[in-house]
Amino acid sequence: MAKPEPLLVCENLTLGYEGKAVVSGLSFSVSEGDYLCVMGENGSGKSTLLKTILKLQAPLSGRITVGGANKSAFGYLPQQTASQRDFPASVREIVRSGCLGRCGLRPRYGKAEKELAEENMRKLGVAPYAGRCFRELSGGLQRRALLARALCAAQRALLLDEPASGLDPEATREMYALIAGLNAAGTTVIMVSHDIAASLEYVSHVLHIGLQKTLFFGAKDEYAASGVARAGAAAGGAKA
């Protein structure tokens, strides 16, 4: 089987805020259909990496090349921001807003976009809540609604920032299973998580960021055999 063309290549990236580097020397690549998990301690630059890939902020140095055919949109699941909590919006309005990247200058959603939104709400089990107010749903349903929105926008890949943050163990398991299902159906996933044990079950590749440098990048099996994983698991075990 020919190796697929990489979707995203990061070369020697240095990330940080206001000239201060948080992490440097990041090099990795993601191919179509991959499920990459980005791990590391709090403050190691995981979320910053996602934001840099999304061009929400510029890298201090290094290069990001986004390949692939005529697709220009990422589906992003951010960590919840405060402003969303009292926002009057129905689940349907929010999920549909994921289709806006496909609309271009058209002022209204077309039939295809509306159907895509309904389909993704069904996939993630939030269809029965489509008309409900977003802020009145449980945390688990809110995360799923936001994931449905991200899926509408994910023409290139899904970028998930702590998809299970704030969820109870049951909802966390369901969330990881859902994401694995989406990946199995062909969606490329890049996920940030500090929950090593739970996320390792499904991923194909691992990028482990340590303080200031890359500790590991490669396939999951190699990661499990490396010392980094044991150290991480020990740290994770100690935390739990």
Binding site: L54, L56, A73, P78, Q84, F87, A89, S97, G98, L100
Partner: peptide, 14 residues
């Protein structure tokens, strides 16, 4: 609506 609800997401979605 999209830019008000979640600007980062809107930028990511193009």
């Amino acid at each position: 609506f999209a830019v008000t609800f979640d600007e980062d997401f809107a930028v990511a979605a193009g």
